[in-house]
């Protein structure tokens, strides 16, 4: 079973949606493994002004992407890199062992969106690497 916090994010996910002219968009996962996450970031002067997400996946996938968007809003790009899967899990008061991969996916989606932003703007962000190629 999930923590109350996870259940709350499943019932009332925050920041669902798209950002029309997003500064960066990251999509990770595939339908075969059962989870796809897409995170949109609005970044101005190196600060994340807004974040939205869309997720195909289980309750934990929805909750991890929901809380990741909450955590990233207001942070600088550099600060956003400190949002690890562990931080996401802690913010949700833990996840069942079989669902830990959902928190990893949330971290990857965030990093993929930041990478997209860096690519579009020709930036090199320390500690940020290209997202792994999707397995089909």
């Amino acid at each position: 079973m999930y923590s109350d916090k996870v259940m709350d994010h499943i019932e009332n996910p925050r920041n669902v949606g798209e950002i029309a002219d997003a500064a960066g968009v990251g999509t990770v996962g595939n339908a075969k493994c059962g989870d796809i996450m897409r995170i949109y970031l609005d970044i101005r002067d190196g600060v994340i002004m807004d974040a939205k997400f869309k997720t195909f996946g289980c309750g934990a996938a929805i909750a991890t992407s929901s809380i990741a968007t909450e955590m990233v809003i207001g942070k600088t790009v550099q600060e956003a890199l400190s949002i690890t899967n562990r931080a996401v899990m802690e913010a949700l008061d833990g996840l069942p062992p079989v669902k830990i991969h959902c928190s990893c996916l949330a971290e990857e989606a965030l990093r993929a969106a930041l990478w997209d932003y860096a690519q579009r703007n020709g930036l090199v962000i320390e500690g940020l690497e290209a997202p792994k190629a999707e397995e089909e």
């Binding site: 999930y2 259940m7 499943i10 019932e11 059962g34 989870d35 195909f56 996946g57 289980c58 309750g59 996938a61 929805i62």
Partner: peptide, 13 residues
């Protein structure tokens, strides 16, 4: 386009 566990979670509510 949607995943079964999420449907079950929302039905559970």
């Amino acid at each position: 386009f949607i995943e079964s566990e999420a449907i079950l979670n929302l039905l559970d509510f």
